[in-house]
Computed example of a mutant assay.
Amino acid sequence: MTGKSHGPAFKAKPIDLKHCHVCKGKAVVMGVFHELPCAACHASGWVSADTGEALPPEVLVTQLGLLLNIYQQRLIASGEALRKAWGTDRNYQEGNRLGAGGTNYTGD
């Protein structure tokens, strides 16, 4: 057998999402006196980028979880890059003038 022919996919793949055009991604719309949940996007603020239609809640939860994981991985990777650029040895290499009389203070 060369590939999968039916049934759910082995791995969940992210679907392209965009902000809802009705609520502008806020998940609520203004009623006469107060804000109401947006019916066009199931009060999520996100719709399918391809069709512009709201995703079913169970699919939407999965997609938002996948996107959150992707963004967290990017944030961690950028934080590690910053940590490497601003390593702990930098505290010892440059004077920070935080010690007594403007001397270097390292906190040790």
Rank of each mutant, 00 (worst) to 15 (best):
T2E: 12
G3A: 11
G3V: 05
K4T: 08
S5F: 13
G7H: 14
A12T: 06
K13M: 03
K13Q: 06
P14M: 07
C20G: 13
C20D: 09
H21D: 15
V22G: 10
V22Q: 12
K24D: 09
G25D: 02
M30G: 04
M30N: 13
E35A: 10
L36N: 07
A39S: 08
A39K: 09
H42G: 09
A43M: 03
S44G: 04
S44V: 05
S44Q: 03
G45E: 07
G45K: 10
W46L: 01
W46Y: 12
W46R: 09
S48W: 00
D50P: 03
G52Y: 10
E53N: 06
E53V: 02
A54I: 05
L55K: 03
P56A: 11
E58F: 08
L60I: 00
V61W: 01
T62S: 06
Q63E: 14
G65W: 05
L66F: 06
L66G: 12
L68K: 14
N69A: 13
I70W: 07
Q72H: 14
Q73A: 15
R74P: 01
I76W: 13
E80A: 03
E80C: 08
E80V: 07
W86N: 15
T88L: 07
Y92W: 10
Q93W: 08
G95I: 05
N96V: 08
G99E: 05
G99R: 09
T106R: 15
D108S: 08
